[in-house]
Design a protein around this nucleic acid. Structure first.
Lengths: 331, 331
DNA sequence: TTGTACGCGTTATCAT
DNA sequence: ATGATAACGCGTACAA
C-alpha cells in the first residue's frame, strides 16, 4: 500500500473522486498505524482550529460549572474542542485569557459573567465570533427584555420580582436585600427588589446589607449584622450566600422560616436538599451553556452574530419561605 | 519600520543577537497592530502546542470542578492552555476525548477518575506524557501506600479507617456502608469499612446498601430501605450521597445524629454548612489538580514520568457524628 | 482516478 | 546585527 499524500488526505476526507478500494485501504492503514491528523498543520491551512474558547470566572462554583459542562457537551457534539480559562473575576486575567485564545487561534470565544466592557471585548477578539453570557458590565445587562445580538441572558428581574411578590403574599413587609459584590448583576437584583416593594405600597426604603462577592465563604459578620436587626424576609444575591447565611444565622438561634424567611438565586442543586430547603429563583444554567455553544458555532459558520437569547427564570418555592404546603413538600 | 520575518521573530523572542533599538521598535509595532503569534504555525515547527488535555467525568460535581480549577490555574501559570473534555463516566466518551486531544496535539494529557484501563490509556496516548489522577479502574487503586509513576492518588483507605474508628469511639456498633456505583474507588471504601470493623472485633458482616453512582439525585428509595432497617451509623461513598440521604431520611422523621450518625467523603464546601453539618473524609482536591498539572508539565519537559504522588486525607468531625463538642462547634 | 506542487506562519540554519 | 531560505504536515488547484 503506497499512495501519495494527497490521495491519503482525500481518502480520509471521503472525497468522492477516490476509488472505494483505495479509500478503504487507506482508512485501514490509518487505523493500523493509529494515525491522527495534525491539527496544527490543518489549522494553518484551513485557518480554523475547531476549538472554542470559554472564559468564565471560576470552575468551582456550581452555576458556572453547570454552564461549562453544557457548553463543552454541546461543543463536543458539534465537533469542537473547548479551551477553558478562569478569569477569577479579575480584568487582567480576563485579558490574558483572550490572549491565550487568540494565540491558540480558537474559532470563537464565549465570555461568561465577564467584567470587561463589551467595547473592549469586541476590540480584542473578532466581534462576529464572540458571544457574551450574563455580561456583568454595567453597560449591558437589561432590566427589560431587550436582546442584543450575540448576548445570552436570563430574565433575572422578572424572577426577582416574582420572588418578592411571593414573600409579600406570605405576609412579609420588611424585606431586605443582601448584596453579592457590586457588579451589574447585583445592581439589577437590588433595584428590582426595591421597585417591587414600592409597587406594592411599601413606603420605607428597602434595607440593604452590603457584602463582598465571596461573603458566603465567611458569613459570620454579615450574619451578626442581620441578626441584630432582623427583617421579616431576606432576598439574597445568590444561593451560596443564602445557604451560608442560613448556617450562620442558625448559630444566632434564628429559625427559618419561623423567625425570618429567605430566598436565594440560581437554583443550584444543594438548594433543593438544604435544611430547610431553600426557595430560589432558578436559572436554566445548562440551557444557557448549550445556547452559548450553539450561538457561537452558528456565528462561526454564518460569519455574523445570531440574535440574542433571553431565557426565562422560575421561582421554586420551598421550605425557607415556609408556607405550610412547602413545609409538607415531599421529595 | 521594515524588517524581515526572521528579525521580527527574533526580536519578539528576545534573541540577544538583535539590537536593542530594533527589538523595541518591533515590539512596539507588534502591539500597535495587535499582533499575536499563530500557535498553529508555531506548533507545526516546534512540535508542541503548549496545550494540555484534561479528561474528567463531569464538570458539574464539586470535587471535579475543584480539581479542574486548580489544574487550569497551575497550567496557566506555567504558560499552558487547557482543553477540557467530560467523559461522562462512559468509556466510549473517554476514548473520544483522547482522540480530540490527539488531534489538537496537546502536549500531555491528565485523566481524572478515568474508567479506561491504564493499559488502554497508555496505548492511546504517549505514556510518558500522561498522568492519572484517581484512576478508577480495578487494576490501579492501591490500599497500601504504593506509588506508581505518573499516578496521583489520595490515601482513601486511611481516611475511611479513621472515620470508622471515630464512629466506633462514638459508641456505634452497627455501622453500614452506602455504595456509590461499582467502581474501584467504591470497592476500596467498602472493604476498608468492613476490615476496620473486623479489626475492632465486630463479628457480623458489615451491612451494605447498594446504590448506583448517581443515587444522590433521587435518594428516595434508598432512604426508605435504610429507614426500614436503621443502623447506628452510615458511611457513605461521598458527600453528595450523604447530603441527599440526610434530606431524604428527614422525610422519614429520622434525626441526625440522634437516631443515626452519618459520614461522607470528599469534603465539598457544602458539607460544612449543611444542617446538621456533615462529618466527612476531606480530600485535598485543589492540591490534587495542582499536582496533576505540575507532574504533567514536568513529564513533558523531562520526557519521562515523575514519581507518583499519594496525598493524605483528613477526617473533619462535625455535627452529623454528633459529639457534644461537635454540636457546639462555632463557625 | 491519482500524483505534483505550492502555501499557510513560524523558527532554525546558513549566509551576509 | 540582520536577511534569505527551508521545513514542519496538511489541503487543494492543477496537471496527468
Amino acid at each position: 500500500m503506497n499512495v501519495s499524500g494527497s490521495t491519503a488526505s482525500r481518502a480520509l476526507a471521503d472525497d468522492p473522486r477516490i476509488g472505494a478500494a483505495t479509500r478503504l485501504a487507506v482508512k485501514a492503514a490509518a487505523i493500523e498505524m493509529n494515525y491522527v491528523p495534525n491539527a496544527a498543520a490543518r489549522s494553518l491551512r484551513a485557518r480554523r482550529t475547531r476549538a472554542l474558547g470559554l472564559l468564565l470566572p471560576d470552575l468551582r462554583d456550581p452555576v458556572h460549572g453547570q454552564v461549562a459542562s453544557a457548553f463543552e457537551q454541546e461543543a463536543r457534539a458539534q465537533g469542537y474542542g473547548v479551551m477553558v480559562v478562569a478569569g477569577e473575576r479579575d480584568p487582567g486575567r480576563e485579558r490574558l485569557a483572550l490572549r491565550i485564545f487568540a494565540e491558540h487561534g480558537t474559532d470563537g470565544v464565549a465570555v461568561v459573567s465577564g467584567l470587561l466592557s463589551p467595547r473592549e471585548l469586541r476590540d480584542r477578539v473578532d466581534p462576529d465570533r464572540l458571544v457574551l453570557v450574563w455580561p456583568d458590565h454595567r453597560s449591558l445587562p437589561r432590566r427589560d427584555g431587550a436582546r442584543t445580538p450575540g448576548v445570552i441572558q436570563t430574565d433575572d428581574a422578572s424572577g426577582v420580582r416574582a420572588a418578592v411578590e411571593h414573600l409579600i403574599a406570605n405576609g412579609c413587609r420588611r424585606i431586605a436585600y443582601v448584596e453579592g459584590g457590586v457588579r451589574a448583576s447585583n445592581t439589577i437584583r437590588a433595584e428590582t427588589v426595591a421597585s417591587t416593594l414600592r409597587a406594592h405600597g411599601e413606603r420605607f426604603p428597602m434595607q440593604t446589607f452590603p457584602a463582598p462577592v465571596d461573603a458566603w465563604r465567611d458569613p459570620g459578620q454579615l450574619a451578626a449584622r442581620i441578626a441584630a436587626d432582623l427583617p421579616e424576609a431576606l432576598v439574597c444575591y445568590d444561593d451560596q450566600l443564602a445557604l451560608g447565611l442560613m448556617d450562620a444565622l442558625r448559630q444566632h438561634g434564628i429559625r427559618i422560616p419561623d423567625d425570618m424567611q429567605i430566598v436565594g438565586f440560581d437554583g443550584i442543586p444543594f438548594a433543593a436538599i438544604a435544611n430547610p430547603r431553600l426557595t430560589t429563583v432558578a436559572v436554566p444554567s445548562a440551557e444557557l451553556g448549550r445556547a452559548a455553544a450553539t450561538s457561537l458555532i452558528r456565528a462561526i459558520h454564518d460569519g455574523a452574530l445570531p440574535e440574542g437569547v433571553l431565557l426565562p427564570v422560575e421561582v421554586v418555592v420551598r421550605q425557607s419561605t415556609g408556607s405550610v404546603a412547602a413545609l409538607a413538600d415531599q421529595p
